[in-house]
Write a protein that binds this DNA or RNA. Sequence first.
DNA 1: CAGCGGATTATTTTT
DNA 2: TAATCCGCTG
Length: 723
Amino acid sequence: MSTRNERSILAELNPEQREAALYFDGPLLILAGAGSGKTRVLTYRVALLVASGRADPGRILAITFTNKAAEEMRGRIHRLVGPRAAAIWISTFHAACARILRREAERLGYGRNFVIYDDEDQLRMVNRVMRDLDMDVKRFPPRMVRAMIEKAKIDMVDAEEYGRRAQDDLTKTVSAVYRSYQEQLLKNNAMDFDDLLLNTIALFELYPAVLEHYQERFSFINVDEYQDTNPSQYRLVRLLSGKHRNLCVVGDDDQGIYSWRGADLRNILEFERDFPEAKVVRLERNYRSTRTILEAANHVVSRIAGRKDKRLWTDREEGEPIRYLFAPSGSEEAAFVASEINRLVEERGYRHRDIAVFYRTNAQSRPFEEVFLRAAVPYKIVGGFKFYERKEVKDVLAYLKFLLNPTDGISLRRIINEPRRGIGETTLAYLENYSRKEGIPLWEAVRRAGEVRGVGAAARRKLGEFVELMEDLSRRMEEKPLPDFLREVLERTGYLEALRREGTFEAEGRLENLEELLGAAAEFFAAHPGEGLDAFLERTSLVAEIDLYDEEEGAVTLMTLHNAKGLEFPVVFIVGMEDGVFPHVRCMDSEASMEEERRLFYVGVTRAKDLLYLTGAATRSQYGDLRVSPESRFIKDIPPRYLEVVSSFQWDREGARLTEAVYRAEALAASFRVGDRVLHEVWGEGMVTAISRGRSGPEITVNFPAVGEKLLLLEYAPIRKVG
DNA sequence: CAGCGGATTATTTTT
DNA sequence: TAATCCGCTG
């Protein structure tokens, strides 16, 4: 195994990169524009710390935005310095906190095998708490309450504080739920995502000796994507770096796109105020994009107020113009993208995996999937239906969480009657009531079902069987290798059996997913021998969308713009360029959120190396209705000299054929609204009750007093608007 | 208690 | 449109 010395590592950096990678005396801010080699600098910096002997690998902490980024960085550092890379802490904030809490949580009253609740678990808990408190869930929707609690946590406002600030009915309600929710989580030995950060902060603040231990331990701290850190992450960074102040943050304020999740751009904008002695290095040379793409990107963000001044440059060639199409309809937009992809692959030698399609919201992937299937374009979607959020996967994980931590009532509730074992809502209500009254975990109440009033003989017997099964499985967990144990859980609980019996297409898919889960588990335990079930569960809770992305596959990648951060592709399509879609309607009413949308656009544009396409559609069918939008205002941010406008009728083959017919009907559809009065040649006057999209094109539903409601194909219906 | 079907409702981005 | 919820029935 050959590892690299300091000199050969440095040879691969430009002067600014080298300056940043070699600065080890106190706080350092690296302002790194898109494509400027930011990850490279961070990687090399850590490698240099190790290679030069300046820091023991175990005393370096590197925080990345996703697990995938962490693994990539570890791989790259490994290539530079060899096996020493294994001792470096490289992870996301959440994973690092989870790791610390595994060791220290008992000080806060949690067991060390606490479980991590995801959004869905959280919502269930909020629901349960609200029901217990007899709250009006119509007036205060649990989803909203959950979001408000989450917001409070992001701002580090605890239940106490929230209660003091509560003014109106809504905040008072949320305050009561928040308090009880937090109590329940503790009782269940569970933490939600935000708790991982907040509890770590609490740990450090309550136990100065513990803080000191970790301050000592992490003598070099590096944080990537610093522009997307939130207040609690900021607090953690301040705490950990408080002693040695060897803190290096890397980021780009122009790429801050997570303020809706609590990220605060001030963290990066005011770094120099926080650390007056900080050194600042700017990386402005872009190695990724053509000059056209880069210039366009510069124009997109140049109008944003209060940004750190920087201007990216490149010595790459000018490149081809950005192609822009505003299609008559969503299906034509998709058809254009598909035919263009085919052309790029057949005539210009691009591979499918060189190409990406970005959109604002996950729901926008559908029309592309449909057209890609028809046009035989291989594709894969990042995000959307998340593997670890599928019902069957979550069910099985709930079994494991429960076996590991029987105080976890949310998981128990989830599995106690899944598959159906005749333990219904009524029985559960008795049990939950009992557990609340006695102050014992739900599981304890289940075991004592005999003493619980109201539980009938049949239910009691079924509960007894369930208890026996769980206790037996819990014993087996110790004895068997974990992958085998997983299969045993699936078999003995009857979960697989129930799915097999169902025999539907859907059940088949679920079975396949479970096989995949077993495979993932086997893989995990092979890669991490000696790790337990808790480590596997932690991994499954903290995976991000992008972590599951594999760039080796020969397929076009479809993903949201948010997921695209940090990636690059030779060819990029940004679709749905319409006001209301991108920028999204919900962001158009405030200046701050419009700026964030603009930064999101900037992120998308700067992913492209050689070719960039922007496409939009005048009409789309949405929620069974036809919606009409103007082109995105972002298009006007790009000087026309960089754009080549593609006319709707310009493209060839399938595109052209599709267009003619669809265009007529779509335009027609756009001219009708629900509530319009129309005149039919035969049936006379009627009122439009719906406009929809059928198999053979747009359809219109009209209610005629004479003959009732009729569904008509717009293209052929002999109708016209009256009045 | 489970399953069905009609009604209702939500539609941003995710660690 | 589609996914979820709710209430009714067997």
